[in-house]
Simulated scan of single mutants.
Amino acid sequence: MSGRYLIVDTSTPAGSLALCENGRVLVEYRRSLPGTHTEWLLAAMDQLLAQAGISPRQLEALAAVVGPGSFTGLRVGLATVKGVALAADLPVVPLSSLELLACAVPYAAEPVCALLDARKSEVYFGLYDTSDGCPVAVADDEVLPPAELSTRLREPVLMVGDGAWVYRDQLADLAGQGCLFASPCLGSPRAALGAELVVRRLKEKCSVSAASLVPRYLRASEAERARNKGDLPSL
């Protein structure tokens, strides 16, 4: 085993890649420019591997954020990862965008509440224990209105992610209960944040085949909602 793996995150407009080795980031690529992930993703993957002087077949695994997040971004990222993994016969480690956010605040004394803006006055919500360094889920990821967080949180937490800042006014009561806000600089997940987490997942044999890799949207797409209402014909 080479100990090298490539992490891909296209769950938000701020896409990123990280080539890592045994928990250490070798090369990172981040992009927040306008446009789709299709325009840069595959070329950036090739560039990162070329800089390291290796081919995909020399990797131990790929890791990919499977959600929640942008429907289009996730489809692009997972399709690309599947193609590379199938061609190079590599396993894939699925990651949550919310647990990547939690990776930004390791060894936190409080539970970490990861919040991504889900639009439509909702947030993607995940609760994690990072006291051991890597995040461990305390509850299942879900999507909900920010006002409902008070019914989910029974103790002070450290809130991280752009959802905490977009809806900060609605979360003011939680701040009064001792909850803390991490820096807005930690608003988006980053592939490099998962470097140590992927090592742990590989040791725990938590990888899947490329064919088994599926997105976790947490809610229906606009087209699915319209179809369920009868506004669109079934395919």
Rank of each mutant, 00 (worst) to 15 (best):
R57G: 06
P146C: 09
L213V: 13
V76M: 06
M1L: 11
A114R: 00
D140V: 06
R30F: 10
R152Q: 13
L17A: 11
E204Q: 13
A18N: 02
L98N: 00
G163K: 04
S209I: 05
G178A: 14
S11P: 05
S234W: 10
A18S: 08
K203I: 12
G230I: 04
F181S: 03
Y5Q: 05
V157D: 00
L202W: 04
Y5L: 07
S121M: 13
D9N: 14
D117R: 06
R219D: 09
A195S: 15
R201P: 00
A118V: 03
L101S: 02
V198D: 00
P13L: 10
A104D: 03
S212H: 11
L17V: 10
A79K: 05
E222I: 14
S121C: 06
P215L: 09
V138R: 15
Q58C: 08
L235K: 14
D162Q: 08
E224W: 13
S207P: 02
S11L: 06
G69L: 04
Y5R: 04
G230T: 09
E21M: 09
E196I: 02
V199P: 00
P135M: 02
A175Q: 13
P135F: 01
V65F: 04
A211E: 12
L235W: 14
S209M: 11
A14E: 09
V84G: 00
T36Y: 04
V157T: 13
G83I: 05
S212I: 04
P94R: 03
C179F: 04
N228C: 06
L33V: 13
L116M: 14
R219T: 05
V198M: 06
L74Y: 01
E122H: 07
V76F: 04
A44Y: 02
S55K: 14
K82W: 10
I7Q: 00
S97N: 06
S221Y: 09
L101R: 01
S32P: 03
T36H: 09
L186Y: 06
L115K: 06
S121I: 03
G15N: 08
D162I: 05
N228K: 12
V93I: 15
A79F: 06
A182I: 05
S16D: 08
G187N: 03
S97F: 03
K120D: 12
V112H: 05
L100V: 07
D162M: 07
P215F: 08
